[in-house]
Computed example of a mutant assay.
Amino acid sequence: MAKTILTVDDSASIRQMVSFTLKEAGYAVTEAVDGQDGLDKARSGKFDLIFTDQNMPRMDGLSLIKQLRALPTYKSVPILMLTTESSDAMKSQGRAAGATGWLVKPFDPAKLLEVVRKVIG
């Protein structure tokens, strides 16, 4: 059975690029349009990995990570930030919130897959 990945981003083009890259590599992908949508989908399913943007309407990425880490199902599920934010301060906040790793947009599809394979196989 394919590993399942939730990708949360308010940019439709980024969601499509991430989904396409992951699906081509054999992963099952669910898309969410913002942090609140991501949280709702995470609560109604079980994902092996979650990608989230930082700057989104309704709920930002750090808030989403904190909410997910509070749920028993997602205490140890890898959560990767995929964002334009690249400051050390923001990365530090991400780690404090429970992010597993950080990728900066625009992303290289090969690098994205390399990171995914590292964290979930």
Rank of each mutant, 00 (worst) to 15 (best):
A42N: 09
P57Q: 15
T30V: 08
P57N: 12
L22N: 05
K23H: 07
V29T: 04
K23T: 05
D34G: 12
D34R: 02
G38V: 06
L49P: 09
G26A: 02
R43G: 04
A25W: 01
D60I: 03
R58D: 14
D40S: 09
S63R: 06
L22I: 09
S44M: 10
E31C: 14
E31P: 08
T30H: 02
G35S: 06
F20H: 11
V33I: 06
M56A: 14
A25C: 11
G45N: 15
V29G: 01
A42E: 13
S63L: 07
G61C: 12
I50Q: 01
T52Q: 10
D53P: 13
D53W: 15
V29F: 00
N55W: 11
S19C: 00
L39T: 13
T52C: 07
G61L: 11
A32G: 04
G35W: 03
G45V: 00
T52G: 13
G61W: 14
A28I: 01
I50P: 00
N55F: 09
N55T: 11
S19Q: 13
F20R: 11
L39E: 09
D60Y: 11
T30K: 09
M56G: 06
S63I: 01
M56S: 09
D34A: 04
A32C: 10
S63F: 04
A42D: 08
D48Q: 10
V29N: 00
K23Y: 01
R43N: 06
A32H: 02
Q36S: 09
M56K: 07
D40H: 02
Q54I: 14
Q36N: 06
Q54F: 15
K46D: 13
G38Y: 12
K23F: 02
D48C: 01
I50A: 09
E31M: 13
N55Q: 13
S44N: 11
D60M: 08
A28Y: 07
D37G: 08
D60L: 05
E24L: 01
D53F: 15
S19T: 07
S63K: 02
D48G: 08
N55D: 08
D34S: 10
F20W: 08
Q54Y: 14
G26E: 02
T52V: 13
G26H: 10
A32V: 11
M56C: 08
F51A: 04
G35D: 10
A42R: 13
G26K: 01
E31S: 11
G35Q: 06
T30D: 12
Q36T: 15
D53Q: 09
K41G: 14
L49W: 05
L22F: 02
F20I: 03
F20A: 07
T52M: 04
M59H: 11
Y27V: 00
R43I: 15
F47Y: 15
T21Q: 00
D37T: 05
R58F: 15
T30R: 08
R58N: 15
Q54S: 02
A42M: 11
K46H: 14
Q36V: 10
S19R: 13
G61P: 06
K23M: 05
L49T: 07
E31N: 12
F20M: 06
